[in-house]
Design a protein around this nucleic acid. Structure first.
Lengths: 214, 214
DNA sequence: GTCTATACGGCGATAGAC
DNA sequence: GTCTATCGCCGTATAGAC
């Protein structure tokens, strides 16, 4: 029976190394390329050893998501704290981070087809959402009539949906009007949260990916 | 050698039946569940026969996308023609269609990992985009200062990105503020394109899916 | 033109030996 | 902790029967 299945310790150095390698594969070639054998080859171990730490691929994906999420959530909270005077811009810049967005998009697609990933994705999403919502609600009353029809929740949905969709379309090679969309959002934010510091050049969205083999 | 590989005729009734069955599997269980053996079982034929019509799975996916696209494009053009006085609303309602959006989202995810699907997805997307753009541009000058900062292209991006993202989040079980977002867009459209006919009740977005097994 | 049978290597997963 | 052997399913290729 599968009851007393032996699993490697979470403190293992090998385990941490495997998680790193798996993330690199995922970013370079997509989640479909994360296989026991490929990961083992990349990390210089046997496939059996990978399975010792992650009995199923779902276990591996959940562990990857948890680790990445913990780090990113810390960064989000810190960013929101530092830019408490302009939470809208902070939320936008956070969601525009390519690596985070690419990984989250990968996990979203994965969750769409893997039951056990769904609960984990929903959980981390609500954590992120909660942190952003709280920061935005504090300043919301000051924003006045400019956004009479918007709400913090709607803003957050749009501010995270837009970069993800742009990323996905870029990956597929769809030539739509992403530059215009980014300009629209930037303009809207600049109007609600006027810049105080030097408006340093906006990071260009998503250089074309070298990823994906087939 | 692989040179004189024999492939079934495109007029075959069996082939059409297989395409239908494949689409049903894709909608019910996701693209990952579309395998030769599963499709053969569902259609009541042998796996070899499926391969006779679609030598590789990519061939199958491309054929599925082409067929679905041709039908949907006809419907889009007809809808835009009938509602030439309110193209914005027509574009919105078209993109809100759940089955079409779900299939396109599936193909988008597929294209993210399958090289040969990418070109096809990019192609059909630009076809759809072009039709919507032309219809919207005709009426655009009349819309006045309400949307001074928007453009037809940006509108179309948002009008198709929002339903897709809502669909994806629903599928994953993310409880975000979709109702508010839909209300925002509906309100915006109602303001730009005031309703003339009876404002019949808006279709509720996406009942929770029963799909996905693992 | 349709369709079947069979084989191959890669995959996730399990059980169990060192 | 580490690694091997094995199982059943997968995509794909090929040879050949009606």
């Amino acid at each position: 029976m599968a009851y007393p299945r032996r699993v490697g310790a979470e403190t293992s150095k090998t385990r941490a190394h495997l998680l790193e390698a798996a993330e690199r594969i995922m970013l370079d070639e997509g989640y479909a390329a994360v296989t026991y054998r490929a990961l083992a080859a990349k990390a210089g171990v046997t496939a059996g050893l990978v399975q010792y730490y992650f009995p199923t691929l779902d276990d591996l994906f959940v562990a990857m998501l948890r680790q990445r999420t913990d780090r990113t959530h810390d960064r989000l909270v810190e960013t929101l704290r530092q830019h408490a005077d302009e939470p809208l811009r902070a939320v936008w810049e956070f969601n525009r981070d390519d690596t985070t967005a690419a990984l989250m998009m990968e996990f979203l697609a994965l969750a769409n087809h893997r039951k056990s990933i769904r609960a984990e994705v929903a959980l981390v999403s609500s954590r992120f959402r909660k942190a952003q919502l709280e920061a935005l609600k504090v300043k919301w009353p000051e924003y006045g009539p400019l956004n009479e029809e918007l709400s913090p929740a709607v803003c957050i949905f749009l501010l995270q949906a837009i970069p993800k969709m742009i990323l996905l379309e870029n990956a597929v090679g769809m030539p739509t009007s992403h530059t215009q969309v980014l300009k629209l959002v930037n303009g809207y934010i600049d109007r609600i949260e006027p810049r105080r510091r030097t408006p340093k050049t906006q990071k260009v969205q998503s250089k074309s990916r070298s990823r994906r083999s087939g």
